[in-house]
Design a protein around this nucleic acid. Structure first.
Lengths: 182, 182
DNA sequence: GCTCGTTCATGTCTGCCAGATATAGACCTC
DNA sequence: GAGGTCTATATCTGGCAGACATGAACGAGC
């Protein structure tokens, strides 16, 4: 019940969909929330242990099998709502590509163009994965479906902004590299 | 010379602009790179000590005054180029707002609209600060000026994308809240 | 029936890092 | 000269990622 942990929020949220092992919870977070969230094994298992101790989740079917499926208790469901209502914790920005571009003079226009092209490629890949996610969500009939589409749309807007910026920036870089390189 | 640290890269980069105290380096990172980078005191001072020990920076004027101004050595400048050339380390995503929106069913449309409005407000503020930064950069005549403008532009594209997404999403949420609330 | 590779599953360890906190000199104001 | 703010340095706690260690289950091939 103490200090709100980001990991515990994500684990509770994942388990609210369906009971899962820690391993499966991590899989679900990577594949379904991967566009805007991430967790590591090193956090998930200690978090599950704490949640179990606090009575927020319970382990079922831990007998014969090695796998311990965890399920939310009613208290866990309450705690999830409580954590969701807490103010959003902003994660400090750390964009290595923009840091390098800011000191682009040191690397030169060609190396900078490589960095921007990389970012552009990643944005293209993101758009493709989001198109899949959108098709999948649109085929569903679930109370959370409209919310899923909103998060997909957030990713699409961000990725398209990256594409537009990259094209603009590649143009500027080619002009920096000398008119002959344009 | 060992494992490349993100903090050491940022500190070397900051000191490459001009010699500074640790405190001033942190100020510079917050104010000038704050849109895409962050550092804490708890990292800067140990990093400076390591860099000093490795001969990459040197302290000057540490005698009478309490303040220790640090300056890049030639080896430090080489190391900076080396670190800038290293592949970008991607920071794992953690967007608490989108996590909450994904489980928006639990909170309800009104609380979700609050979250989106918050994000919209922050994007507006970001755009205002970036407009200042752009004016400042455009007034300069510096070899790095075009690169500064590219990073400013990245922030502007991202912020405008957030605005467009927020408006679209607020509209969708108002329709979810029932046609009467639209 | 045995080995081998893969997947599922649980955990530990190291080290990066943010944020809070403690401390104190410098300078300014009233 | 008392109090407040800014500059400056440093430490400590705890969240967290990523690499690693370990082993069960299971199918493929011999």
């Amino acid at each position: 019940m103490a200090k709100p942990s980001q990991t515990e929020l994500a684990v509770l949220a994942a388990l609210s969909v369906r009971p899962m092992t820690g391993y499966a919870a991590r899989e679900a977070i990577v594949t379904e929330l991967g566009m805007f969230w991430s967790e590591s094994f090193g956090q998930i298992y200690p978090a599950l242990a704490r949640l179990r101790e606090a009575g927020l989740v319970e382990a079922v079917q831990a007998q014969g099998s090695r796998s311990a499926v965890h399920r939310l208790t009613p208290a866990g469901r309450e705690r999830l709502v409580e954590l969701l209502r807490e103010p959003v914790v902003a994660s400090p920005p750390r964009n290595g590509m923009l840091l390098r571009l800011f000191f682009g003079d040191v690397l030169g226009p060609a190396a900078c163009a490589e960095l921007v092209l990389d970012a552009r490629r990643r944005a293209e890949e993101t758009l493709a994965r989001l198109a899949d996610a959108r098709r999948g969500a649109e085929a569903e009939n679930h109370p959370q479906q409209p919310y899923w589409l909103m998060t997909v749309s957030a990713g699409e807007h961000a990725a398209r902004a990256t594409l537009a910026w990259a094209d603009e920036t590649l143009d500027a870089l080619s002009r920096l590299g000398g008119p002959a390189a344009g």
